[in-house]
């Protein structure tokens, strides 16, 4: 298990320089716009790296090699779910640091909404991963990448549709938002676990 995680960390570390370069570019954006934005941007950027690890596995036919080692197939899947979780945590963490530094340089006082933004982005990432992973195990990473784009579009289209129907978005009470923020992690966690079991089922049956 630890070995499987370590393998992906090595794979990604290979691209450390590119990652730092991208972060550097993003930080410029952070200066020009709202610094809370950068938390989401960096968070998603790190989360998407999981797709690269799937691509590396594809090109080297890693899954076959891994399944020949003394590990259970569900461990191979679990390692990916753990890594995605870790990447989301790291991404949000790095995002916080960047936005803090940017705010500090610009003498902008600390605003606690950034914590809410980070928290929400984190949940959204896990939500997307829950949907993405079974797709990757079923259809492979390249097709899933396309599917992910479509999935990404749905909420945007939904919001655009809503806003074009009425000039005002439906009013939501603060209590409702707060309840949603409290309940969401539980739901997302359950979804993430269910997603893991679905991926395991798909992967167990697969001919490698």
């Amino acid at each position: 298990m630890a070995g499987l995680l370590l393998k992906d960390i090595y794979n990604l570390r290979k691209y450390g320089k590119s990652i730092i370069f991208v972060l550097f570019c993003y930080s410029f954006l952070g200066f020009t716009m709202d610094s809370t934005f950068i938390v989401g941007l960096i968070g998603f950027f790190f989360a998407i790296l999981i797709l690269s690890t799937f691509s590396y596995d594809d090109t080297s036919k890693w899954d076959r090699y891994a399944a020949a080692m003394p590990v259970y197939r569900k461990q191979i899947v679990l390692a990916k779910y753990l890594l995605a979780f870790l990447l989301a945590v790291i991404g949000i963490g790095v995002g916080f640091v960047f936005s803090y530094v940017i705010n500090f340089i610009q003498h902008v006082p600390f605003d606690s909404t950034i914590l809410v933004v980070g928290y929400t982005v984190f949940l959204v990432i896990l939500f997307y991963m829950s949907i993405l992973f079974p797709l990757v195990y079923r259809f492979g990473v390249e097709k899933s990448r396309m599917l992910l784009m479509v999935i990404f579009l749905i909420p945007f289209l939904a919001i655009m549709g809503l806003s074009s129907m009425s000039t005002d978005l439906p009013a939501v009470s603060e209590v409702a938002i707060k309840t949603a923020l409290y309940v969401a992690p539980l739901l997302i966690f359950v979804l993430y676990v269910i997603s893991y079991f679905i991926s395991c089922r798909i992967f167990q049956k697969k001919d490698l």
């Binding site: 070995g3 370590l6 090595y10 890693w62 003394p70």
Partner: peptide, 26 residues
Amino acid sequence: VVLDDSFFYEGLTPQQIGRVLGKVYK
């Protein structure tokens, strides 16, 4: 096992491969 063209990602070094396998095999 040596499997037909299925191995570690080629970006890794033997040292890294050894460390990974060290955590996999007792």
